[in-house]
Design a protein around this nucleic acid. Structure first.
Lengths: 146, 146
DNA sequence: AGTGATACTGATACTCGTTATCAACTTTGT
DNA sequence: ACAAAGTTGATAACGAGTATCAGTATCACT
């Protein structure tokens, strides 16, 4: 893994980029790029979709945001929380929340020695019914579709 | 009814569907829907994209294939191996291989009790440099592709 | 300040993966 | 054979994301 202590990249923190960053930082859910775009328009009216997409890519490339594939739809989701964490996705309503759950170091070492890969990180998503959706699907109620 | 012991869904195993299934089963990589389509055309010329997409969704819905989000691009990838397994994705060449790595049951119980979610499954992808790409990027050796 | 170089923006058009539609076709049960 | 239902492939449509490009803002330097 590369160690980059400071980001001296040759790019500017423009108002548009700051707005995108603020949307990400204040988001508790995990918005798609399209959703980020919608929200950014409030604080930065007139901003174009291209700028939002470009900025998201820039932030991800500089480690200031994470790009997630939570496996529900097709679109990537973004997360301003760059600290190591995993995700919990409701299979019914699609809500995604952060969760802390370190994988045992032995497991990683095991994989390294078994496969020869130089692991840099891992993505972990748990799927299941959130408490709200469990309540909504109470025991004596059948699933209506498969 | 007789041909599918576990799944009694009301659908036929048509030649097209069988072809898609065979492509998935014989694939060692993890093809996208578009790639599946390309390969299926060999054994089932004339098949349309809609049929492939429909069939993939059908297979996934019936537990005969897995839909993966390996986080590289945008498109889902498909896997005929429905047994529980995880994935190892090379950050350089993008190759995705299967890997076996059970998560400790305690971890799952911990999450269940901590969050109230009724966990159904989890997705785990490890990312890193595969041995080949490591060799290609050895310290004093430059990339020389041609 | 003035000036030129360069990064950045936003509108637009475009690509391309995926889905909806629908008439024709195939299979099943009677 | 016939009707009902499922399936297919061509086509059109959709939508997320990207490329392009002229205009604008900012920087480095004098």
């Amino acid at each position: 893994m590369l160690d980059t202590p400071t980001f001296e990249a040759d790019w500017r923190l423009t108002p548009q980029r700051r707005a995108v960053l603020e949307v990400l930082e204040s988001a508790t859910d995990h918005p798609t790029a399209a959703e980020v775009f919608e929200r950014v328009r409030v604080s930065a009216p007139g901003i174009g979709p291209a700028t939002v997409y470009r900025t998201l890519a820039l932030l991800v490339a500089n480690g200031m945001a994470l790009e997630l594939s939570l496996g529900e739809g097709s679109s990537s989701r973004y997360d301003g929380n760059t600290a190591r964490h995993d995700h919990l996705v409701c299979t019914s309503c699609g809500a995604a929340s952060d969760i802390q759950s370190a994988l045992p170091g032995e497991l990683l070492e095991q994989i390294t020695s078994r496969t020869g890969y130089a692991l840099s990180h891992y993505d972990l998503q748990f799927h299941g019914l959130c408490p709200e959706c469990q309540a909504r699907r109470s025991p004596h109620q059948e699933e209506m579709n498969g």
